[in-house]
Simulated assay, not measured.
Amino acid sequence: MVLGLGTGSTAAFVVDKLGQLLSTGQLSNIVGIPTSKRTQEQAASLNIPLSTLDLHPHIDLAIDGADEVDPNLDLVKGRGGALLREKMVEAASSSFIVVADDSKLVSGLGGSGLAMPVEVVQFCWKYNLVRLEGLFKELGCEAKLRLAGDGSEKPYVTDNGNYIVDLYFKNPIKDGFAAGKEISAMEGVVEHGLFLGMATSVIVAGKTGVEFMTK
Rank of each mutant, 00 (worst) to 15 (best):
A82W: 07
R85V: 02
T208D: 12
G209N: 08
S9P: 04
D166C: 08
C124I: 07
A179L: 04
D60R: 13
L22Q: 13
S112V: 07
F195G: 02
G188Q: 08
V69N: 02
T24H: 14
F123H: 12
M213F: 11
W125T: 01
K37P: 00
D150N: 15
V130L: 13
A205C: 09
I63L: 12
G65S: 10
A11D: 00
S103C: 06
A148Y: 04
S152V: 09
F195L: 07
G180F: 02
M186E: 03
T214F: 15
G151P: 04
V15A: 06
G65E: 02
L132I: 09
D70H: 10
E211C: 03
G149P: 00
L114G: 01
G140M: 09
K137T: 02
D67F: 09
L129P: 00
E90S: 06
K87A: 05
L61G: 05
L27R: 15
H192A: 08
F169L: 10
G197H: 12
V157H: 14
D70Q: 04
L105K: 09
E86M: 02
S23E: 14
V202D: 01
V165F: 07
G193N: 02
L114T: 11
L109F: 08
F212V: 03
S9Q: 14
S93G: 11
A199C: 03
L139C: 09
Q42L: 13
S93F: 08
V89T: 08
S152D: 05
K77H: 02
